[in-house]
Amino acid sequence: MKFDDKVPIYYQIKNYLYHEMMTGALKPGDKLPAVRQLAVDLTVNVNTVQRALGEMITEGILESQRGKGNFVTMDEQRITQLKEQLVMEQLERVYEQLHALNLTDEQIIASLKQYIAQRGQRDDQRVSD
């Protein structure tokens, strides 16, 4: 995995794992690889992985079972909540940046709609090509 050196690594590890959960690569109740294995897979420090997992356990996304390892929570509600949170974070970023361009809320909505429509067409074209 390629990291952005400007962003704390533990934060990027968390995002990576969130992503895995959202795409379904990691399902509720799944066991995570061992800490060292994760570190090797991601080419990061064991301590950093531990920090990321520690925070995720505190957040209730992961459950740690002594001697067995870390598991994705079975609490569907928590996962839905996480998904919402991630969507909100992305939207927040887009919103702030567009806002910084002096767009009003209505304009932002209009731009988004327009973008999605255009994007849909382009993707359709690409498929038909």
Binding site: D4, D5, K6, P8
Partner: peptide, 15 residues
């Protein structure tokens, strides 16, 4: 700590 550098300055270790 390297993550402190990233958090504090918002730049990479190399930068």
């Amino acid at each position: 700590p390297s993550d402190a550098i990233r958090e504090e300055f918002g730049i990479g270790i190399e930068a």
